Simulated scan of single mutants.
Amino acid sequence: MAGGPGGAPRPIQLQAHDPPLRYVGDMLAWVHQALPSEREAAQSLFAKCSNLDPTEQTRSTVASVSESVCRPPRTRIERTIVTDQRREGGKKPVMLYKISNLLRFYHNTVLQVTDAGLLVATLDELHQLSYKMFLYQHCRVKIEPPGETLAPTPGVARTLSLLTEVVTATTVADDAHHDCKQIVSCVVDPLMNAISESATGLGAVESAVYLLNCFHQLHTTGDKLEMIQGQIDAQLDTLSQEQINGVCVS
């Protein structure tokens, strides 16, 4: 992955301090662009062979040749995925999700050119690693105790904003929309539990008001609406009963 003639473009390894998505994308694009020339050379080599299938032999040869480029991208992409990207701040889960989709796209694209060799396996393993890291980062939900206004805390808004950004992120992966349901479940379930736990210690009315405010904000996520609506109805019932009890006592 050296640079071009005269140093332009510059070597990819010098871009390690660039935004992670660009760095990973440049590496994968370089690998992808190198495959057609290898395929053309293999096609020319096997074109006049009558005792074998030129297409199948070409795919097999390209898969074998591409094994030599697997180690550098694996090492550098793994480092990019697992490194604490402090410069990304709260955007790290979003970055991991975009890298995961990029890896999946190139895995599917390379598989159209070669057999399922080491390069394809490497891209798939890196995709799985980045997606697992993304889910791990995304599932960590921290909610502050409610304030006097009983409004949703900044942690609720922050988590929902991150969820929205991930779900709506532009992606080149054809089947990335299949991830949405899993992602929403991964975030909404822990978030609802964290919200309920943060309301511990409030009175019945204050707790119901706080939970209603939070669940109403959650209601905009799209999925899980039935479950969230059930929670909203339960808190409305609690408030109604408390009002009725208050009227009866007075």
Rank of each mutant, 00 (worst) to 15 (best):
residue 149 T to M: 13
residue 166 V to M: 03
residue 147 G to D: 00
residue 146 P to D: 01
residue 147 G to V: 09
residue 138 H to N: 08
residue 170 T to H: 08
residue 160 L to M: 14
residue 159 T to P: 04
residue 167 V to E: 03
residue 144 E to T: 07
residue 139 C to T: 15
residue 148 E to W: 01
residue 135 L to A: 12
residue 170 T to V: 11
residue 152 P to F: 01
residue 168 T to K: 14
residue 170 T to P: 07
residue 159 T to L: 05
residue 136 Y to A: 14
residue 160 L to Y: 15
residue 144 E to L: 10
residue 169 A to M: 06
residue 163 L to K: 10
residue 133 M to A: 12
residue 145 P to K: 04
residue 143 I to H: 02
residue 148 E to R: 11
residue 138 H to L: 14
residue 137 Q to M: 05
residue 150 L to C: 07
residue 169 A to P: 02
residue 137 Q to A: 14
residue 159 T to G: 00
residue 143 I to V: 11
residue 144 E to R: 00
residue 140 R to Q: 11
residue 165 E to P: 09
residue 147 G to M: 09
residue 140 R to L: 13
residue 151 A to Q: 13
residue 151 A to S: 13
residue 148 E to G: 09
residue 134 F to Q: 12
residue 140 R to K: 04
residue 170 T to K: 08
residue 156 V to H: 08
residue 155 G to E: 02
residue 170 T to Y: 04
residue 160 L to E: 06
residue 134 F to A: 02
residue 145 P to H: 07
residue 157 A to V: 14
residue 142 K to G: 05
residue 139 C to S: 15
residue 132 K to W: 00
residue 154 P to Y: 11
residue 151 A to D: 13
residue 171 T to R: 07
residue 136 Y to I: 12
residue 150 L to H: 00
residue 156 V to A: 02
residue 140 R to H: 08
residue 139 C to D: 05
